[in-house]
Nucleic acid binder design. Sequence first.
DNA 1: GGAAGATGCGCAATAATCTTTCGTGCTTGC
DNA 2: GCAAGCACGAAAGATTATTGCGCATCTTCC
Lengths: 166, 166
Amino acid sequence: MVATRLDEIDRMILAELQADGRMTNVELAKRVGISAPPCLRRVRTLEESGLIRGYHAEVNSRELGFEVQVFAMVGLESQAEAELSAFEERCREWPLVRECHMLNGEVDFILKCVAPDLSSFQQFLTGELLTTPNVASVKTSLVIRGAKDEPGVPFDVLEERMSRTA
Amino acid sequence: MVATRLDEIDRMILAELQADGRMTNVELAKRVGISAPPCLRRVRTLEESGLIRGYHAEVNSRELGFEVQVFAMVGLESQAEAELSAFEERCREWPLVRECHMLNGEVDFILKCVAPDLSSFQQFLTGELLTTPNVASVKTSLVIRGAKDEPGVPFDVLEERMSRTA
DNA sequence: GGAAGATGCGCAATAATCTTTCGTGCTTGC
DNA sequence: GCAAGCACGAAAGATTATTGCGCATCTTCC
């Protein structure tokens, strides 16, 4: 945790860029209350420190033809580290798998997948995921509808926290 | 699905901006092989059509002090539409809940949550989520480690699909 | 066929932004 | 109290965004 080294301006910059990553630097500087050059320096520093990992356009998956979104709970036969890593590597190679998280509890991994349609996903499920060595069980749940999808973290919670420790 | 109205250049633009949302327009134009003005016009059109929903900086949650990530599976007492909407609205108000998706199957909703630490999350869980009316069951799984976290959609799959139908 | 309209490109010019340089003030530590 | 280290902001030049316009291509409708 390096967040303590950040002042309030840095946190404002992060919050603004999380909300609108394409904002011009002058607009950003105006919003956080400093002039453009130091603002740009701060952004560069945040990027180099790894606090900002990158910038992404948020695309409309459904309109683009990815009508299906699925969560898959995967259990493995063996939870030895080598097996875990091997499965993670597989996930990285599957384009339909967008996220893969290792969990505690009965399920070993949760995967967030997208697919153009149900049959594409079934094909991936039966042809790829279920035939992967060491995969013991897969339970899938189709997303009926999305209710909330916010990127990143809630900066208001962070601010609240900082002011309490200050 | 409006993706069929897009040509290959539009899809390249979307792919590039999904990968690097802060790329300059001249760089983008160079990569997709047209000059800057028409490239900017295409980007504006994509934004106005809603295919590009926005741009976001990807921040390092852990380094920012959100060390805990949790998936929560929520079951409701009643699945009447009014109750579903009410729960979704609650989720939108909770800053720690970053995503909320309605699922098919035994579980009604899956929530992706972040929190500064375990006790913050427990506090949210017992003080907010579990005390919400109509919530019947909540099963939580802590994220041990993240293996993959790609934003958006796999454009190579889309390209493959387009070339097949063309 | 062939002309009229629509669409989309690229060039050129201007406006805005980015980025570097440099001088100043403020804190920090001795 | 003073030097060193930071971070800021003004100014200037380089780069980029944005607009206007002419041209080519492609449809569409005689």
